[in-house]
Computed example of a mutant assay.
Amino acid sequence: MSPTTAKVHGQRSSASPHLDRLVDFAEPVPTDECLDLGCGNGPLPAALEPLVRRVTAVDAARSAARVAAGAPAPQAAPVPPPAPVPPAELTPGGRMPTVVFDPARYRGGDGTSTVCTDAAALPYRDGTFTLVTSRFALRRLGDPARALREMVRVCRPGGRVVVAEVVRPSYDAPARDRLERLRDPAHPGLPALDDLARLLTEAGARVRRLDRINVERPLDQWLADATDPAIAEGIRQALIDELDGGPRTGARPRVIGGELWYTDTWAHLAAEPHRP
């Protein structure tokens, strides 16, 4: 193992298996110019940074906050023309596994350039980047369709647009959406995987690969963002009741190590811009 390979392996091993899975799914190459569209600090740009030529991380949420406060968002730095990369190929999907989410293993990193700008009006020319990513940010950007159109626009033909999102479970989806809105009344609901694929198609891209994974997470950390402690306790009780044979919540609860956990479904989509 070369020193560079060992360094990359060590950085990725300190993250989490599902973050590694997303990085592998994105198929980064050393010549990639990468743009990551996010809503604050996240682990994906740091995980991609040692594997590509350059990563530009867009903090769209911070830009929106600055504009709301009356301050202009900083101008994004120019990016040189990227080197060509091979087109993505369609690969067959596999069985959906379940892994355990461990938030303590998430760590941000240095080595990326971060800019604040509007996700619906990225200040880059068409085809500037060869890899454009977004991880769990679309529903927080206000207009996912416009954000996806911008992601596709700034991605070079033959490049990859890679999106990771929490999606509706294959069953009990309405019950799960009710649970999400109880926890956070502003939550727009979980998108269906088919809807994400349709939005990418309407944005001008061909979906080449799909990946889906069930991820179990500690309930306490999810309920920490609840708007009302009484509501959080009601959600907890609903999951306990489900374990005792009560109504299904769509959260697929389970007790792990004496603690209550719930299950998310995460989807990865890789698309290639299609220029008519």
Rank of each mutant, 00 (worst) to 15 (best):
A226C: 15
T249F: 13
P247Q: 08
P253Y: 09
D225Q: 11
T227C: 01
G257F: 11
A224V: 00
G246P: 04
G257Y: 11
R217D: 08
G245Y: 07
G257C: 14
W222V: 14
V255L: 08
T249E: 12
G234K: 03
G245N: 06
G246Q: 08
T249S: 15
V255Q: 11
P218L: 09
D220N: 05
L223V: 04
A238G: 07
Q237S: 15
D241H: 13
G250E: 05
L243I: 10
R252M: 04
I240S: 05
D225I: 05
A251E: 07
L243V: 07
A238C: 06
P218D: 09
D225C: 04
A230I: 01
D228C: 00
P229L: 04
L239G: 03
P218R: 06
R248Q: 13
E233P: 03
D241I: 08
I240M: 11
A238E: 08
R252A: 10
L239Q: 10
G257E: 11
Q237H: 15
A232I: 02
P247T: 07
D244F: 05
D228Y: 00
A232P: 04
G246W: 07
E242L: 09
T249K: 11
Q221I: 12
A232C: 09
E242Q: 13
P218A: 14
L243H: 10
L219T: 15
G234H: 13
E242D: 07
A230R: 00
A226L: 02
L219Y: 08
I256R: 14
D228R: 00
A251I: 01
I231F: 02
A232K: 02
L223F: 03
P253G: 11
I240E: 15
L223K: 03
A238P: 02
G245E: 09
A238S: 14
D244Y: 07
T227V: 11
D244C: 13
P247M: 05
R236V: 04
P229H: 03
A251D: 04
I240Y: 10
V255Y: 00
G257V: 13
G245A: 08
G234N: 10
T249W: 11
T249Y: 12
P229E: 02
L243F: 05
P247C: 08
R248C: 13
P247Y: 07
D241W: 10
D244W: 06
R248A: 15
A226P: 02
A226I: 01
